[in-house]
Amino acid sequence: MKKDIIVCRDVKKSFETERGIVDVIGSVNLTVPENELLVLFGPGQCGKTTLINVMAGLETVSFGVVTVDGKKVEKPGPDRGVVYQATALFPWLTVMGNVEYGLKAKGVPKKERRERAQYYIDLVGLTGFENTFPSKLSGGMRQRVGIARAYCIEPTVLFMDEPFGHLDAQTRYLMQEELMRIWEKEKRTIVFVTNNIEEAVYLANRIVVMTNCPTTIKAEFNIDLPRPRDYVDPEFLRLREEISAIVDKTL
């Protein structure tokens, strides 16, 4: 029996807006065991990002409780790495500067810091780009830096909020493959948000389908397909159809 890393109990989140109080998260109960790659899948704007932000501590819950590794989540912390939709790299720091930032904040001595950062830069395939600024990198390469930066603080959990959403189709496939390679090598608990069904089935151990706002869990699917997965395998396509069919349709 694997340890439960993330536990969400009766989590609700509302925002106060000009139109009054808007419920974004209905009431979510969710546990994520160690080293699972969980995909939160649902229509656009349905509150998936809010759920991830709540788990990462970037937003506070309105009701309920989130724990990560037994500790209650109240603010962001280095035990929870986040890979953002729009990379959120520090533009004035080089690739090395970005990746080692977390270790520097922790006070890790320079030599060890450099070695560890280099390990993750190599892992994501950016060897030779250590001294390049993000503005000189392609979209896919920036996301690699984002992944290396989050990995480098060696967090218990990694949250990935549609990290490949802005990439072109070719780069997206490549990055999905890359993420699988990285994850096989450095197993972590990952919560991955996407609205792309193909990506979801390709990556997930388990897919949690979310409803429209206020979001709740609609269904869960365990994906036991062998890896590396094949996008045109009949079983892959069947799952893809089955899950697509139950998702709320929105514009």
Partner: peptide
């Protein structure tokens, strides 16, 4: 978002200000 990212990486307030 950058401030959030720095916080997520464990930076203190004074470090966020400086870096």
């Amino acid at each position: 978002v950058l401030i959030g990212a720095a916080r997520m990486l464990g930076a203190s307030d004074s470090r966020i200000f400086m870096t």
